[in-house]
Design a protein around this nucleic acid. Structure first.
Lengths: 153, 153
DNA sequence: TATTGTTATACTCTATAACTATA
DNA sequence: TATAGTTATAGAGTATAACAATA
């Protein structure tokens, strides 16, 4: 945005609107998944594991754009809820392997349904064209700006 | 999004992309303003006060979509940095009045410049049409979904 | 009684840095 | 030495609920 802009014209910042809307959408989603005993961050981690069976914390950290320490903490909580398993890698003695438990795998579709519902709540009123544009533009930013690793790829 | 969607098709969630991009944009902005000793939330609060001179915590809470307690905490920090003043309302003995100090008012344009720079970094590569569409769509969601009060307006 | 603001408490999210075990 | 992971610590960002002062 290299357009001329007065100091007080603050709502012109795209980052501002993005944050504002995103916070509301995420908070609404958080309230929904809370009923299932998980947080949004925990859901994102679980989701990463659905397609791949198992991943080491380091790979999850890359994918989610977080530190390994943060992953450990998230994993600890999911472990305590019996949604995740943590096993030593048989090959590399330093590495660990995180995978969903059966309970975790069962929970994912339920949470996905909540994500669907949340999306509907906030985006269904948009014209299909706008909805498509929004996804396209966001993905474009991720790609072009090289945001830390693509989430699911 | 009432489109048919398989459970594993997770990146189809708009809320997901929104959160992902927004988090990156905000984190980058946070690193920039940090050099000036403030956080993003503090900046948003300061910004609210630029145009209006003074507001009670309750009004700020409405505008920012936060609780009064959260505002108190933010204000405490800005007070400690001499960027804000807190004075009892002369009319209503219960009310307080928050306003920027001269130092605070001086800081706002500097932070606004950083917001500009951050926007540029993430959105300048977009086609002008897409950039406009993004703002329009986001504002539309805020309006139509009635997200807690419009931020500045 | 209702409202304004503050305080107390508690979590989540996340980072940085130190540390352990292994490679 | 370098890497994988964990742990310790800390602070931001919030929320809820209890409380004090005033209306």
């Amino acid at each position: 945005m290299s357009t001329n802009r007065s100091t007080s014209d603050l709502t012109a910042h795209l980052g501002y609107w993005l944050r504002y809307v995103s916070n509301h959408v995420s908070q609404a989603f958080a309230r929904k998944v809370e009923a299932h005993g998980v947080t949004v961050a925990e859901w994102v981690l679980m989701r990463q594991l659905l397609d791949v069976d198992a991943l080491p914390p380091s790979r999850l950290a890359e994918r989610m754009g977080m530190t390994r320490g943060a992953i450990t903490k998230l994993a600890d909580r999911l472990l305590a809820k019996s949604l995740l398993t943590r096993k030593p890698d048989p090959v590399d003695g330093r590495a660990q392997t995180l995978a969903l438990t059966a309970k975790g795998r069962r929970l994912v579709p339920e949470l996905a349904a909540l994500a669907d519902a949340n999306d509907s709540e906030f985006f269904d009123h948009l014209a299909p064209k706008d909805r498509a544009a929004l996804v396209r533009i966001l993905r474009d930013i991720v790609e072009k700006r090289g945001l830390k690793s693509l989430p699911v790829d």
